[in-house]
Amino acid sequence: MSIAATTSREITLQLATGRSKDRTTGSLIFLGLLWFSLFFGVMVLLALIISTAIKGATRFDSELITNYTSIVRPETAGFRAGILGSLWLMVFTALFAVPLGIAAALYLEEFANPDRALNRFVEVNLQNLAAVPSIVYGLLAVAVMALIGFQDAGIVLGGALALALLILPVIIITTREAVRAVPRDIRQGSLALGATVWQTTWRQTLPAAVPGIATGTILGLSRAIGEAAPLVVVGLAGSVLFDPQGMMSAITALPMQIYSLTSQSREELQQAASAAIIVLLVMILGLNALAIYIRNKFQRSW
């Protein structure tokens, strides 16, 4: 084997494995800074979580979930209305955003003509919308609610609409990536057997992309469940003393209650807010764990 072939093979191996024998001082310093940044970020996060858990440790009881928020008896204040409100919001957010997001992604990826100016305009704006601050979606939801005749947007419908607008670009982008990951051979084989483009998409492409779609959708919902900024703009109350009764019912959400209680000066309410932060964190981690399980359980190797 020639020297040139050996050198080419070594370079290819280095690029494939990410390893290189060239250990210069600059590269080592840069690598050390990267590891320090990762270590520092993780340590700060752990410190915040541990300090919050210690502060709210005295309130990890059943009353935290079964009771309503009470200023009169702060030692027994709970977050029943906020937890139920968050669950209601997640259900209707999924009903609004998931079907529309999947349908839009399938159209853009399988049916739309990428050379048309309108489709290019939509694709560019999808990338931009994913980075828009969440409070903007709250303003948009208020405008939509006023347009369809609702003067008070602080209801289940208004909150779910704001969160659906928030995660819709994320669902579209992740669904397109999942559909794009399905090999073209599957589509071509289906078309060669006489199936239409719609039949191929519905019976072959979409089922093969379900793990990626489910993962992206759950991660989008886990982002929405922790959002407070769009709900503040929509006008959800910080304290509600009843369970949601329907789409037109006034509600609160767990992030809203946490935001409201952290501004209180009484120590008991501060402890309750710290315990609620851990509850919210457990809910978010649970959704993320479900997404990881679905990805690992149903992921296919092509």
Rank of each mutant, 00 (worst) to 15 (best):
G18V: 09
S37H: 01
T76S: 15
V182Q: 02
A141P: 04
W88R: 04
P230V: 13
S265D: 13
A53N: 05
L28A: 14
I278W: 03
T196A: 03
F92V: 00
L140Q: 02
D115G: 13
V132M: 12
V197I: 13
S301D: 08
S265E: 14
P133C: 10
S263M: 09
A146V: 08
P133K: 10
Y107P: 00
L261N: 08
T175V: 05
S249G: 10
T262D: 12
I171V: 15
T215V: 11
R120C: 01
W35G: 08
L46K: 02
G154A: 11
I167C: 07
A141K: 02
L254I: 12
M1E: 09
A195M: 14
N67K: 05
R266T: 13
W202N: 04
A224R: 02
A229N: 07
S134W: 01
G138Q: 05
T217C: 15
F79L: 12
F111Y: 14
A208M: 12
L89Y: 04
A105N: 06
Q245G: 14
L281H: 02
L13S: 13
Q151C: 02
A229P: 00
V42D: 03
V182C: 10
N125K: 06
A250L: 05
G101S: 09
V210K: 11
F36W: 09
I225E: 01
A237Y: 07
T66M: 08
E268V: 02
S86Y: 01
L157A: 15
R223W: 07
R59L: 09
L89S: 11
I251V: 15
A250Q: 14
M90V: 12
K297E: 07
L165M: 15
L13A: 15
P133S: 11
Q14P: 10
W88T: 04
A208F: 06
L191G: 06
G56M: 07
A164Y: 06
S274W: 04
I213M: 13
A57S: 15
Y137C: 09
P207W: 03
I294Y: 02
I102P: 07
G82L: 08
R180K: 14
R223T: 10
Y107C: 04
F30Q: 10
E177D: 10
L254Y: 07
I135F: 12
R180W: 00
R300L: 13
S51P: 04
L34V: 08
E267R: 10
T175K: 03
P183G: 01
F150I: 03
A104M: 15
D22P: 00
S8P: 02
E10V: 15
I292R: 15
V197S: 15
F92C: 12
L281D: 04
W198T: 14
R116V: 03
S260D: 13
L15M: 11
G226R: 05
K21S: 11
K55D: 13
G235I: 09
E268P: 04
T12L: 12
P99L: 05
A130Y: 00
L166T: 05
T200D: 10
Q299Y: 06
E268A: 15
Q264G: 06
R300D: 11
A162K: 02
A228Y: 06
K297W: 05
I167A: 07
L280V: 12
I284L: 09
Q299H: 12
R80E: 08
L161I: 06
S190Y: 01
L13K: 12
I102L: 12
I135K: 07
E10F: 13
K297N: 08
A214V: 14
P169R: 02
Y259D: 07
T205H: 01
I173T: 11
T262N: 14
T76P: 00
